[in-house]
Design a binder for these strands. Structure first.
Lengths: 214, 214
DNA sequence: CCGAAGCGGAAGGAAGTCGTCCACTAGCTA
DNA sequence: TAGCTAGTGGACGACTTCCTTCCGCTTCGG
């Protein structure tokens, strides 16, 4: 809409902007969208003033991070879908390289604050929906080839991962770092179609995650 | 030490105390140990003043909740261990009736605040260690009977579980309620010993969870 | 070399939480 | 039933934490 806010920035300003976005991304993923602005600024190696110059308030920052990240994941997911002939393998790949995906899920489905902020933005909304469509395809495909248990939906997977990965990366110590990927591994094995215990209730679909009423 | 602070309370006071403990327990489990005192008071149906009369500060409340809950879980775990001949079945039962267990894990291993508070109390510490011993027994036993995958330790299970269930019960809506038990089900299937993908790193033991340095 | 864009971080202000205090209520005892 | 005292609730001031603005100084780029 407006004449490309990302060009026509002085070189150093441009660099700072990118650093802020990267820092915010990693911190949001690890600790949710409510962390102090100053912490983000520090992680980006800039002052708060700089952050606020570039993003007028927290909402703007969250929106920018979401846009950037959603796009990236969507591209990734589509690339994987194109490369991988087995939907199950694709799903697995998607889940394992999960740092990016985690943020999507975090922002789009878990963090209440983020949800409210992003809900208003139709463009973000559109990206979110496209991602869910792709995820749904993976799920249905993997089930069709008999690799994914039949009694789960895309919503189950989203919830599982969002909850799992959250807080996991917050700790810096080496045990915690290992824990995250191990948990993902266990979950994947739990999801695979092998004789196990049936789950209670019904599959949770991506549709169930839509915020209808609050 | 002091002459039993739980007797010699007026009947209504006693009742209030119990309600506070129950409310705190359920709220701590769902949202961690940092929720406002007023929220706990409200949930218990009393005023803040009453809460503070019974528990001088937040630390005292956390300690009391932990003691109560740890004892309960320890008794439970031992009862299950005695009743169940298969350690794997015992472990599964323990994990499924998880509300109590979740709080233990939350308090003892995840919440940083709670950790600091409880660390000083040798009695709590002792209970915690006993629970970990019992859990370790379950894990080793289940592995010995070939039901539990060999590449996990008690720490893996604790982390997985704590992270999973946290935040899960916060939402009241019916989808979220279902999600929790479904996630536990998936996790259990992921833990069971069947051909799956090996996990990265090494098993995380209960020892790894001890807070050595901070 | 100069002007303007950009920078950091101190500081004002808003929001929320803690724990105290005191006027009032209700169990227990005689 | 009456009185004593333990118990109660919630308003309130101190404090903390976070948001955002503002301004003197720095750095880029022409």
């Amino acid at each position: 809409m407006t004449a490309d806010p990302e060009t026509s920035l002085r070189a150093d300003a441009r660099r700072n902007r990118d650093q802020i976005l990267a820092a915010a991304k990693s911190i949001f993923a690890a600790s949710g969208a409510e962390v102090p602005m100053e912490e983000i600024a520090r992680a980006a190696g800039v002052g708060v003033g700089t952050l606020y110059r570039r993003f007028p308030d927290r909402d703007a920052l969250v929106r920018a991070v979401a846009m950037d990240n959603f796009e990236r994941v969507l591209i990734d997911a589509r690339r994987i879908a194109a490369e991988e002939t087995s939907p199950w393998n694709g799903l697995e790949r998607l889940l394992r390289q999960s740092v990016e995906l985690q943020l999507v899920v975090q922002l789009a489905m878990v963090s209440h604050r983020a949800l409210v902020i992003l809900k208003g933005d139709p463009e973000v909304r559109r990206l979110r929906d496209e991602i869910l469509v792709v995820l749904d395809d993976f799920v249905r495909g993997a089930q069709a080839e008999g690799k994914l248990r039949m009694d789960v939906g895309a919503g189950d997977i989203a919830i599982l991962f969002a909850t799992l990965l959250r807080q996991m990366r917050a700790k810096t110590d080496e045990v915690a770092a290992m824990a995250a990927s191990r948990c993902v591994g266990i979950m994947i094995d739990g999801l695979s179609a092998r004789p196990g215990t049936p789950l209670p209730g019904r599959p949770i679909t991506s549709h169930d995650l839509d915020p209808e009423e609050h």
